[in-house]
């Protein structure tokens, strides 16, 4: 098998995640889809690292994880406060620039 298949998988996962972001209304699911996209990227980085024979790709993936962790913390906090005020986690409900 050619390791390029990993890249195809990565692309597939990324596309599925992106489509999910566009389709789902529940903010938590949307957020999960974003995580899926990030993970797909990480997979690609790891495969690139293998392809080039150095560890820089893995470093980037590592940083991506850190950033993703930070993003999850803030994002979930936003969802919680959103839910507190609107009693709903739907992103479509937040379509006006006011509460």
């Amino acid at each position: 098998m050619n390791p390029v298949n990993y890249l195809y998988l990565s692309a597939l996962l990324f596309t599925i995640g992106a489509t999910g972001v566009l389709i789902r209304r529940n903010a938590i699911v949307v957020f999960m889809c974003i995580e899926l996209m990030l993970n797909a990227c990480n997979l690609a980085f790891v495969v690139f690292s293998r392809m080039h024979g150095n560890l820089d790709g893995q470093i980037i993936a590592f940083f991506t994880m850190v950033v993703a962790a930070a993003e999850v913390v803030v994002g979930l906090a936003i969802i919680v406060s959103l839910f507190r005020t609107r009693h709903s986690a739907s992103v479509d409900d937040a379509s006006l620039m006011k509460l």
């Binding site: 972001v21 566009l22 389709i23 209304r25 992103v91 379509s95």
Partner: peptide, 13 residues
């Protein structure tokens, strides 16, 4: 410009 974040996301994507 309907205010729906998902519509904007489609444009971005």
């Amino acid at each position: 410009q309907n205010g729906f974040a998902r519509s904007y996301a489609v444009s971005m994507f």
